[in-house]
Simulated assay, not measured.
Amino acid sequence: MPDRRATHAGSWYSNSGNQLNQQLENWLDKAELTYGPARAIIAPHAGYSYCGACAAFAYRQVSPAVVKRVFILGPSHHVRLRGCALSIAEKYETPLYDLKIDTQINAELEKTGKFSWMDMNTDEDEHSIEMHLPYVAKVMEAFRNQFTIVPILVGSISSDVEAIYGEILAPYLADSQNLFVISSDFCHWGKRFSYTYYDDSCGPIHKSIEKLDKNGMDIIETLNPSAFNEYLKRYSNTICGRHPIGVMLQAVNSLQSRGYRMNFKFLKYAQSSQCFNMSDSSVSYASGSLIFE
């Protein structure tokens, strides 16, 4: 099988391994380890100039010594998917070093009958998974030959279908050698995103956006998938990774019913710019960590 090229390197992040390594190192150094070891993280997938510093707060919670496998769940931005899809590649290229796909886990997931396969064009067009690859490579660099990745492209699925995938992935989430990366930006605000919700009691528009996002973040921290779905129905907040988040919440819900105890905490929030006028636009970013008690 062909390797997946680092198609967004040089535009969304540096294609120079040395420069990229230095950037990631600087961001990680400025983030504190306060909520680890992470079993799952939520982190953004925009260009690193916008969200690189925010993403570091999630990746700083990872304990690389225990991780043998990294599941990366990203939303599909370009193709319509009724379910979830796996990669046909054997390796993902990054400017730091190549990441090996776990073909054995892919085969296990395929046997469930619930997963399709991305073609290489779909895989290489999609940035929601790729933007996490350099960070995964960086935090795992001391163990670069001792781990694999499982990229999963998540389609626009109902809460019932999220529950099916959550049930499938729950045993993998329960395994302390696995790390789940949930790829999501938060509110995409502005006319170009066809979303201009504004609560003027908050003052400036960017404060209304922050309140809206943090309301959703607070609900995610309760680990209640039904409450998160109700929030999305009420506000239609343009959280592009809502379905990967939903799958994670359903996996957590499945494990909680079996006696597992988990907690999630958001550690950083940022916006690409501050909106003051209806002609402005911004994208929000949030980073958080799920730990097992």
Rank of each mutant, 00 (worst) to 15 (best):
I205Q: 00
Y197T: 10
I41P: 01
S287M: 08
Y92G: 03
K111C: 03
A163C: 11
I205R: 00
I205H: 02
K207H: 14
C202S: 12
L169Q: 02
R5D: 13
H206N: 14
G166Y: 01
S116A: 11
L20V: 10
P204W: 04
K91Q: 15
L267D: 00
R4Q: 15
L232I: 15
H243Y: 13
K233V: 02
Q250M: 11
N21S: 10
Y172K: 14
S236L: 07
H45F: 01
R242D: 07
R144P: 11
G74K: 03
F266T: 03
S194E: 07
A89W: 01
D125F: 07
N229L: 13
M278W: 13
V283F: 05
H8S: 10
G166E: 05
I88N: 14
S208T: 11
L33V: 10
A270H: 08
H77R: 10
E25K: 04
K91G: 09
I149C: 07
G190S: 06
P44C: 06
Y260K: 06
H77W: 09
I129R: 03
A40H: 06
Y135R: 03
I72H: 02
K265H: 13
F115M: 03
M1W: 12
N21D: 10
Q22H: 10
V136E: 04
S76C: 13
L96S: 05
L249N: 01
V247C: 05
A227K: 12
Q23H: 01
I101S: 03
F292V: 08
P95M: 08
I157D: 00
L267F: 13
S194P: 05
T112W: 02
L81P: 00
M120W: 08
A85M: 09
P134K: 12
V150L: 04
Y97P: 00
Q22V: 05
V139L: 11
A53I: 04
M278T: 14
M120R: 15
L86R: 06
L232K: 07
N106W: 01
R144T: 10
A56E: 01
P44D: 05
Q104A: 04
C54I: 12
I209E: 04
D199A: 05
Y92W: 15
F292L: 08
Q146G: 15
R261W: 04
R192K: 08
E230D: 12
E221A: 14
C187G: 04
D125C: 10
N106E: 03
H127I: 11
C51L: 06
G47Y: 06
I129Q: 02
I209M: 08
D280L: 09
L212D: 06
A40M: 06
S184I: 05
Y195C: 13
Y59V: 09
Y13R: 04
Y235I: 14
H188F: 14
G288E: 05
A65H: 10
H8Y: 14
G246H: 01
S184Y: 08
M131Q: 13
H77V: 08
F266A: 04
D175Y: 14
F57L: 07
D3H: 12
A55R: 00
E126C: 11
I88F: 13
V283I: 12
T103H: 07
T112F: 04
Q256T: 04
C54Q: 11
D102S: 09
H206C: 11
F266S: 02
K68R: 15
E230S: 09
M131P: 04
G166W: 00
C240F: 00
L28P: 03
A58Q: 00
Q146D: 15
I168F: 05
I152G: 03
P37G: 05
E124A: 13
S176L: 08
Y13I: 07
F228W: 08
S208Y: 11
A31E: 05
